[in-house]
Design a protein around this nucleic acid. Structure first.
Lengths: 243, 243
DNA sequence: CGACAAGTTGAAAAGCATCAAAGTAGGTGG
DNA sequence: CCACCTACTTTGATGCTTTTCAACTTGTCG
């Protein structure tokens, strides 16, 4: 099983890992471009993504769609809908995917028995809020070129690649999907992508991307540097398991 | 003390209310338009807002600012920054405010001793993600007029006013601040506001607003209806306090 | 009354959307 | 193996929304 996103904040103990693993249901498989759960559907719990990419999107009344998040393996899916009576977001597979359901009673048993894991669920939710704040800022304040740079850097970071000078990865998202993430039309996204490539900061060969000039991209993106906490003291003091 | 946002999801017991109250520090007062905590500052914990309005905003490198949230009394402030080493958002008072700090160790003791309150913290974070998803969708997909309608409806809802046919309230936000919320320039916001008033859906008298045609505003906003959960079964099963 | 901040107005330009059509790649069946 | 189909990408032309810049007006408070 993949490292959980939790482990970005603390190393889990074997027992905690095992508890999480046992609470999740059977692994489910889906092909690419399949709706996993549609906005308005009944909510059955959370999901963990074991393999593949998934998008969460919000459908507006007029048929327009805003994609609010690209999920990568290890992510928790569908959590915002826990606060709602029916699902508030549509989950769609981008690639073939494997995921598991964490039903409500499993979630309850975590809050009952594993305070540290509970706190980690909370921390992950806050991290997602940071991601959302950043995307909102990008979409609200920057032009198309800058938004695209921000998104590519964000994906590279989340793939754990950012560090070296240049970075390359496969981008399974279509231009329509990129446009929905950035609040642009596919047509304008296409032209923007070409401008970005023309600037020399990015190269493209089919689905393969090469971010060849990270620091110029960062400059173009205009976002602030930030660092996640690791092993915060208050969390470390929590017992792993209640009696 | 004001009803906590938590109570939108469950009624707290007296003991839980008392625990929350005791964990928060002294009430602090600030005048309007004061920075409570700046992006990049050291993090001391969370805050609860007892009175007044506060905005959370994200400052970009070029000096532009996106306001990501308007906080009303009862809200928790500064939570996303728990996942970061330094604050990721600037908190600014809009009106004179009263707030309290919940230091880290108080938060830890909640996760250790109060599983139900822990779960409520988690639920509230998910609710904030829903709000952020909605704002992102509005900013990413709708024009200025529609975004403004969405924001006004959102504020009316959060003030607990939505229900009747018409709604009126004081809006302490300046046009500059509204523009930062909506990803528009103040100039364009001004014209858009006038257009909205011209359409007859909204009336304005100084800072007082009257939303006179809610259903047309809803139509213009184009967002989906949604309902928050109340007393979800999984949460009700949790013990109020650990041994 | 004066000074400063907030709100309003106008004109021009930039950025993005829209519509329609042509090009390209990957997969399927003959 | 080629031809075709379909879905995705790219291009062009045009119009609308929003930004930008600058000036003017109104409101607020000492």
């Amino acid at each position: 099983m993949l490292p959980h996103r939790f482990e970005a904040f603390v190393d889990l103990s074997e027992e905690e890992r095992k508890a999480l693993k046992e609470l999740a249901g059977e692994a489910q498989h889906r092909p690419a471009r399949q709706t996993i759960r549609r906005q308005g559907d009944r909510i059955e719990g959370l999901y963990t993504l074991d393999a593949g990419w998934v998008t969460s999107s919000y459908d507006l009344k007029d048929g327009k769609r805003q994609t609010v998040k690209v999920h990568l393996p290890g992510d928790i899916l569908g959590a915002p809908s826990l606060a709602l009576k029916t699902a508030g977001e549509t989950l769609t597979s981008v690639t073939p995917v494997i995921f598991r359901c964490i039903p409500f009673d499993a979630l309850a048993s975590i809050f009952r028995e594993y305070p540290r894991v509970s706190a980690l669920f909370f921390l992950c939710a806050q991290q997602e809020r940071v991601f959302l704040m950043e995307r909102l800022s990008s979409v609200g304040q920057r032009n198309a070129l800058s938004r695209l740079a921000t998104l590519l850097l964000h994906l590279a970071e989340r793939l754990g690649l950012l560090g070296g000078a240049a970075v390359s990865f496969e981008l399974p998202l279509r231009q329509q999907e990129l446009a929905e993430l950035l609040g642009l039309t596919p047509v304008h996204l296409n032209r923007t992508f070409q401008r970005l490539i023309g600037s020399g900061m990015v190269e493209r060969d089919g689905r393969a991307l090469l971010l060849s000039d990270i620091s110029s991209l960062r400059n173009l993106a205009g976002m602030q540097a930030r660092e996640w906490v690791y092993m915060p003291a208050w969390l470390e003091g929590l017992p792993q398991k209640n009696a």
